[in-house]
Write a protein that binds this DNA or RNA. Structure first.
Lengths: 341, 341
DNA sequence: ATGCATTTATCAACCGTTTAACAGCTATCA
DNA sequence: TGATAGCTGTTAAACGGTTGATAAATGCAT
């Protein structure tokens, strides 16, 4: 290892100015104990010498890292990346940095990230659980040590702390109701794994809408899989092989709707002519596919911002401000070609 | 602030076992100075007490953080997010964590991130420069202190350190040559800002292919903008307003090609019938749009892996291994509907 | 019993910053 | 004069590990 110890410390500054290190430290933090003149002298010298505070030393001493850990299934999902932007901008405003880890939708990786973040002594943890996370056991180090956790978007079912979610029930309801109003009578549903709150809620909304319009719920119309394009294509083939087709489809994400539409094209099945489709998330791809995809918008950027501001409030223990425990973002139906005639 | 000082330290373990802290420290690191028996006893007690090493204290002492800073324009670009996955997986293998910052394509934010990462004492910096970065001045803290930097994908033109790039010249050449072979004679080009090496190279490849097939280069066929969908749509309108249309278009990214195709559809112009289009990057969207988009694949995951392994070698100063200074990844033409008849 | 090497574990300094406690100095007032 | 207060700045002990120097304990040969 090369020697990289040539960094400027407060001692170097102190020595040059004939002061003590603590005075320098205070001056740099605009501590009122230090008078104007010395403060300016110190700050000038600091910039002149190219001093950059050693964040590591400071966090060790202050027992505070100003880092927020972030666990997401993957950054490449459109919703996730917009949420990350929201988080990052909000965190930056308050002087926090964020450290991102991808769980790749596995519990094992999630556990490892929790461990790493704990070891890094992050001040708080922001997480979107993996599709296969059924409980919060592996988040124990944080729970036990009272380090704030906020789950957003996907929340493990046994978690009873702070959450920021979209109104998934309402989203499922709106999407399904829209299809019904467009004349659909046989509406299929692509759902994600049902251990995940999100998909439970979207399914519940779907069922509720059917019930509200006196359409009997048919278990066999619900296709549960991991919502990848591949799985969706398989489910589509299964549907097309049946004697009687559905006339509507509500999918719990956009990419499975996209895969469905592509598969339908291959089979010469008309969307929206024969089957109307509504997706979820308002991904970029929903505007690119043709027919353009009707979907549910759930403002990822805002959810990210809210998640960040919530965890920061928890970290700072802003007693004055009441931090809502379960914040739900409204959703909006975006009507496009895939569901309208 | 709540008191969160209830964490287990090596001193707690030492006390319980009647040992000294240093023995515990050594035992936990499998230092051969400590005998088998004590080592096991210590490790057992550590897990029993739920000890997690304080990474901050350890990096302060060791002057090594095992964190790699990563600066990208934004995580939401498909290529970037695949590269990030590659980086993260590779880093994880070697016990490094990565810290991601988004520059939002601004030099100011880039500068701030450099500062933050320097303050965090990251062991190395991985960066994709913003579109508007013309030099490396603001990366000075790293350069001056001999902290390794590796640029990948987009590289500032004055940087003469380690780089990992796709073969952009070749990509531009392949795309253009393909269009020519498909019969195009008047080929337009959407380029990104030309201070960026990437776009320079793609343009150079475009020119070279034209020259190789004796097609005169026409300055007015090159549209330079920021390659957002909006800008591409504007450029498309400009093209459509002209009396004579191009018969081919090579765009330096996929989303501008997608925007162009959508605009063409609106105007009733046939792709590939009247204009054949080739994009760049093999984004997800290139498979979703119809007609599906021909494009250049530049394996982001592998580039990310390579970038990570390179910086780790530099950090570790693996003298034995020769680290190539400018690694270039081959690119591949993906032919789809948008350019074939 | 003595000397010497080897194994095993401890001591104490250190990383760079923060901060409680304290000290020196000047000014003010009884 | 001495007591009190207000500024300004210093000392030294943390924070939680790591590690070179050192000591204690043991074995073994003489």
């Amino acid at each position: 290892m090369k020697d990289r110890t040539n960094k400027v410390t407060i001692y170097d500054i102190a020595q040059k100015l004939g002061l003590s290190a603590s005075t320098v430290s205070r001056a740099l933090q605009n501590n009122p104990l230090i008078n104007e003149e010395t403060r300016l002298k110190v700050q000038e010298m600091a910039t002149e010498m190219g001093y950059v505070p050693n964040w590591i030393a400071s966090s060790l001493r202050k027992k505070r890292s100003n880092i927020i850990g972030l666990i997401v299934p993957r950054t490449s999902m459109y919703f996730q990346s917009t949420a990350i932007s929201g988080i990052q901008h909000e965190a930056h405003k308050y002087g926090f940095s964020i450290m991102i880890g991808q769980s790749d939708e596995t519990v094992a990786m999630e556990k490892e990230l929790v461990h790493t973040f704990y070891s890094l002594r992050v001040d708080g943890l922001l997480a979107v659980s993996s599709m296969f996370t059924t409980n919060t056991d592996h988040f124990n180090p944080f729970v036990k040590n009272n380090i704030p956790i906020v789950f957003y978007d996907r929340v493990p079912s046994d978690f009873n702390g702070y959450t920021i979610t979209g109104d998934d029930y309402q989203g499922g309801y709106l999407a399904t109701e829209h299809l019904i109003r467009q004349g659909c009578k046989r509406i299929a549903h692509f759902s994600g794994i049902l251990t995940c709150n999100l998909y439970q809620q979207r399914l519940a909304g779907y069922k509720a809408a059917l019930a509200a319009y006196d359409i009997p719920f048919d278990e066999s119309m619900v296709y549960v899989h991991d919502l990848t394009m591949q799985s969706a294509a398989n489910a589509a083939q299964e549907i097309f092989s049946k004697s009687v087709l559905p006339d509507g489809l509500f999918t719990a994400n956009d990419s499975s709707a996209v895969a469905f539409i592509q598969e339908a094209k291959k089979q010469g099945i008309q969307v929206p002519g024969q089957i109307k489709v509504v997706g979820y998330s308002n991904d970029l791809s929903s505007r690119i596919i043709s027919p353009s995809l009707s979907t549910i918008e759930q403002s990822g950027y805002n959810m990210g911002q809210k998640a960040a501001s919530t965890i920061i409030q928890l970290i700072n223990q802003d007693e004055g401000i009441k931090v809502p425990k379960n914040y739900v973002f409204p959703v909006e139906l975006i009507q496009r070609e895939s569901s309208t005639s």
